[in-house]
C-alpha cells in the first residue's frame, strides 16, 4: 500500500507538497497509469474499511459518510478517509511480460 506519506519518506521530502502531489498524479493518470487510487476509511476503533469512491461521493452530497458496517453517519469523515495507491493492472501486466 502506497500513500502520499510513503512517497514523501522514500524521496526524503520534509512534507507532502505540490510537486510531490503532481508526481503521484502523473503516475496515477495519463497513459503512464502505473498506480490506481483507492480510499481507506479508519473509524474511531481503528478498524479499516476500503471505501467505494461512490460512497465518498455520496458523503460529499449528503454532508456525512455512512459507516460501512453500522450505518452511523460521520460528519467529520474527511479526517478519517485516506487515499492510497496500488500498482495498476497495467503495471503488473507490464512486469509480468518483462
Amino acid at each position: 500500500m502506497l500513500t502520499f506519506i510513503s512517497f514523501k519518506n522514500v524521496l526524503g521530502y520534509p512534507s507532502v507538497d505540490e510537486l510531490l502531489i503532481r508526481a503521484v498524479m502523473l503516475l496515477a493518470n495519463s497513459s503512464v497509469h502505473a498506480l490506481d487510487a483507492k480510499l481507506l476509511f479508519i473509524d474511531d476503533d481503528d478498524a479499516e474499511y476500503e471505501l467505494d469512491p461512490a460512497e465518498l461521493e455520496d458523503a460529499r452530497k449528503e454532508g456525512a459518510l455512512a459507516h460501512p458496517v453500522t450505518g452511523a453517519l460521520i460528519g467529520d469523515y474527511e479526517r478519517k478517509v485516506f487515499p492510497f495507491f496500488v500498482p495498476s493492472d497495467r503495471l503488473i501486466g507490464a512486469r509480468a511480460h518483462a
Binding site: 507532502v16 505540490e18 502531489i21 481507506l40 478517509v81 487515499p83
Partner: peptide, 20 residues
Amino acid sequence: MTFQSIEQLLALVQDKPALE
C-alpha cells in the same frame, strides 16, 4: 502516521484550483 487524510490533502490544494 503513514496516511494523509482527505482533509489534509484538501487543505494543501484549497487555494490551487488547477491542482485540485
